[in-house]
């Protein structure tokens, strides 16, 4: 099973491809405020991550996701469940 840090690495790599405001990404980076992702870009980011991890991310979790860390923890949880 993938470790938390592997999930983080994947999120960094996908986010950097999609982000409009290029900058250093870490666990506390806010996907909307810091990376400038609008609602469509967030969807694009999620779709790319779903492909990489072979999971489906329910839209319901989105209100709880603000930072890269929030997203990584949700993905980890989803991978445990699947």
């Amino acid at each position: 099973m993938l470790q938390y840090k592997d999930i983080l690495a994947q999120i960094y790599s996908v986010s950097q491809e999609i982000a409009r405001d290029k900058q250093e990404i870490n666990e506390t980076t806010d996907l909307v405020v810091d990376l400038g992702l609008d609602s469509m870009a967030v969807m694009e980011l999620l779709a790319a991550i779903e492909d990489r991890f072979d999971i489906s991310i329910p839209l319901n979790i989105l209100p709880d996701v603000r930072t890269v860390k929030d997203l990584a923890l949700q993905i980890q949880q989803l991978m445990v469940e699947s």
Binding site: D54, I57, N60, S82
Partner: peptide, 22 residues
């Protein structure tokens, strides 16, 4: 319910997601 989007008109993506649901 859990809400999962699939890519527009993409039956391959839809099947992938059905498969993941077990």
């Amino acid at each position: 319910a859990e809400i999962i989007r699939f890519r527009h008109n993409n039956v391959i993506d839809l099947e992938k997601r059905l498969r993941r649901l077990g």
